[in-house]
């Protein structure tokens, strides 16, 4: 029997594929089997394996990072970094805070970048802006206190409280 791919060499490899319950038999010569990748040598280059490799790589001895760091845990969802580095999936939005140093490195590796420059959602965006403003006002308030301008500080305190109420914090 001739190879079904090149129609030239003798078929030496029989491949059975089952896709969605449809069985298909293919007869290939060794060369074509290698090229079409129908021979699986147990090498797993799947996306998930590459990703988790990337996550684990941070703990390679050459990186001089203490292995015990692996046990840090997200307080909100209780996912450990160790579990994340195996699954490649984070457990909640707080994980980005809980593992921030590590995540930052991972993001730089994956995206070559660590800062979002795209769309800002309207409502959440307002919150982000309000939070920034609170931060700024706090700084001003501290300065006012240091200068013993207590009236001004009280004004700022009220403004901060108002803003925080608005964003529900």
């Amino acid at each position: 029997m001739l190879c079904q791919n090149c129609q030239e060499n003798d078929a030496k490899v029989h491949v059975s594929k089952i896709i969605n319950g449809e069985k298909e038999d293919i007869y290939l010569c060794e060369e074509c089997a290698h090229i079409t990748g129908d021979l699986d040598f147990g090498l797993d280059f799947s996306f998930n394996n590459l990703l988790t490799g990337l996550l684990n790589n941070q703990f390679h001895p050459h990186h001089k990072i203490n292995l015990s760091n692996n046990n840090i845990k997200c307080e909100f969802c209780e996912l450990t970094y160790d579990t994340f580095s195996k699954s490649g999936r984070l457990g909640c939005n707080e994980c980005y805070n809980s593992f921030t140093d590590k995540i930052d490195k991972v993001l730089r590796r994956i995206h070559g970048n660590n800062r979002h420059t795209g769309k800002i959602p309207k409502r959440a965006g307002e919150k982000v802006m309000a939070k920034r403003k609170v931060k700024k006002l706090r700084k001003l308030m501290d300065e006012a206190v240091a200068k013993e301008e207590f009236e001004r500080a009280a004004e700022l305190r009220d403004e901060i409280k108002e803003l925080k109420d608005e964003i529900g914090e």
């Binding site: 490649g88 984070l90 457990g91 939005n93 980005y96 995540i103 800062r115 979002h116 939070k131």
Partner: peptide, 11 residues
């Protein structure tokens, strides 16, 4: 998130 944008399960 202000810095990371939309937060997803997979980084």
């Amino acid at each position: 998130d202000e810095k990371y944008g939309y937060l997803t399960s997979c980084p």
